[in-house]
Amino acid sequence: MSLPRVAQSDNPWFSWQYLENNPDRILGALTEHVSLTGQSVLLAAVLGVPLAIAAYWFRPLTGPILAGAGVLYTIPALAVFAFIAPYLGVGAGTVVIPLVLYALLMIIRNTLTGLVQVPAEVRDAAQGMGYGRLAQLFRIDLPLAVPGILTGLRLATVSTVAMTTIGVVVGHGGLGQLILGGFRNNFFRAEILTGTVLCVALALVLDLLLLAAGRLATPWARRRAAAA
């Protein structure tokens, strides 16, 4: 007398029943994940783009800024958690700081690459037309650096989505909460895989959204591609 095969593998990698029974928990984790990632990338951009501009304007600062961001990037995120958790407690804010520090390097480096690639003739022409430093930055340099800034944002977003899961160490890991929760809950495979799949899917969706936003922000690039 043998049981049907399904009954033996009681711990499937995917289960509709799990999804149907836990919509609130899954949706909550997803929402927290999106909010943490969004805050981190936004903050990293708000800090990183001005730093890249500073490095662009004052060449001697380029080395120190990139090296500093490199050191912050090298320090493991868990170590950063360890440094700040004793002071800031275990709130959602504690998760954002390591993520910002991690994303900073990608944004600074790519923004700087975008700015440096502005052709010298274009800069000369702008100065010849009487543009001041700020006007040149906002109307010439930054728009032309959009592809670089966007590359940085996309890299930062995709890796931050993956990195946010580490927030489980202080109980705010978004989808990481599902992944580790499933692991600790007697190796509940369906929960682990749901968290993982949603995480990867979120990264891909955000990446495509940013790509589309970049297309909209640089209409000239499309026109040039169509003409060529």
């Binding site: 990481g176 580790l180 990446d207």
Partner: peptide, 18 residues
Amino acid sequence: SNLTLAIPVLATLTILPL
């Protein structure tokens, strides 16, 4: 490399033992 960037380390660490 873009794809692996999107996979959380936490996921491979928890999935592989199973």
